[in-house]
Amino acid sequence: MEALNANEQREFQNIYERKQLKDFMTVYSRLIQNCFESCVNDFTSKTLASREQGCVMRCVDKHQKAAERVQLRFTEQNVALMQSGQIPGQ
């Protein structure tokens, strides 16, 4: 980072932000895709049936909680790695 001049740094920042946004959008659209496919199966009416609505809620909730749990475990391992200076579990 320090080796870059101001112009390059701006460009780097740009690329980095775009990549992050892309990652986020991938995760987000996959979540929508999954929940839509598994919950919405009635196309005779334009509104979501209450059954479908409940299913979507639960689906998103489940995804979020799973992601949170994985994130926690990942951070734990990261902290352990930082402090001990070696790859955990080896």
């Binding site: 951070t75 734990e76 391992q77 902290v79 352990a80 402090q83 001990s84 955990p88 579990g89």
Partner: peptide, 10 residues
């Protein structure tokens, strides 16, 4: 210094 303890601490 064990990983297990560090994780527990965290």
């Amino acid at each position: 210094e064990e990983t297990e303890d560090l994780v527990q601490e965290w």
